[in-house]
Amino acid sequence: MATRKNAKPKPAACPDCKGSGEVPTTVLVGRKRRPVGKQSGICLNCLGTGEAPADGE
């Protein structure tokens, strides 16, 4: 298979979510706030895109 010469390089993965766009958040319940599990949430660093944000923007 031939490679394209004009192909854009793949953007770097977000360091916080490792490119998935989601991060685990611990779910706390009860008066003592004990952890019972994990819940997936959107990555606030890349806003769910999975790409590393550009510096200076």
Rank of each mutant, 00 (worst) to 15 (best):
M1I: 10
M1D: 06
M1K: 14
M1H: 12
M1F: 04
M1P: 05
A2N: 12
A2W: 08
R4M: 09
R4I: 05
K5W: 06
K5A: 11
N6G: 05
N6P: 00
A7K: 15
A7Q: 13
K8V: 11
K8L: 10
K8G: 08
P9T: 12
P9H: 07
K10R: 08
K10P: 01
K10A: 06
P11I: 01
P11C: 05
A12I: 00
A12F: 00
A13Q: 06
A13T: 07
A13H: 05
C14F: 08
C14D: 04
C14N: 08
C14P: 01
P15R: 12
P15H: 12
P15K: 15
D16E: 13
D16S: 13
D16M: 08
C17N: 03
C17P: 06
C17H: 01
C17Y: 00
K18I: 12
K18W: 06
K18E: 12
K18S: 14
K18G: 11
G19S: 04
G19C: 06
G19I: 07
G19Y: 08
G19F: 02
G19Q: 03
S20T: 15
S20Y: 02
S20N: 06
G21H: 07
E22P: 00
V23M: 03
V23E: 01
V23W: 00
V23Q: 02
P24L: 03
P24M: 05
T25V: 14
T25C: 02
T26V: 15
V27G: 00
V27P: 00
V27S: 04
L28V: 13
V29Y: 01
V29R: 06
G30P: 10
G30W: 05
R31K: 15
R31G: 11
R31L: 10
K32L: 10
R33T: 14
R33W: 05
R33V: 08
R33A: 12
R34E: 12
R34P: 00
R34K: 13
R34D: 09
V36N: 02
V36G: 03
V36M: 04
G37S: 08
G37C: 06
K38N: 11
K38A: 10
K38E: 15
K38Q: 14
Q39M: 13
Q39P: 03
Q39T: 14
S40V: 13
S40W: 13
S40Y: 00
S40K: 14
G41I: 11
G41E: 11
G41K: 11
G41H: 05
I42M: 02
I42T: 15
I42H: 02
C43M: 08
C43D: 01
C43F: 07
C43V: 09
L44A: 14
L44S: 09
L44H: 10
N45F: 09
N45L: 14
C46D: 05
C46I: 11
C46P: 07
L47G: 07
L47S: 08
G48M: 03
T49Q: 04
G50T: 09
G50I: 14
G50L: 02
E51K: 13
E51A: 12
A52L: 15
A52S: 09
A52P: 01
P53R: 08
P53D: 01
P53K: 13
A54Q: 14
A54N: 04
A54G: 10
A54V: 13
D55T: 12
G56N: 05
G56C: 04
E57S: 07
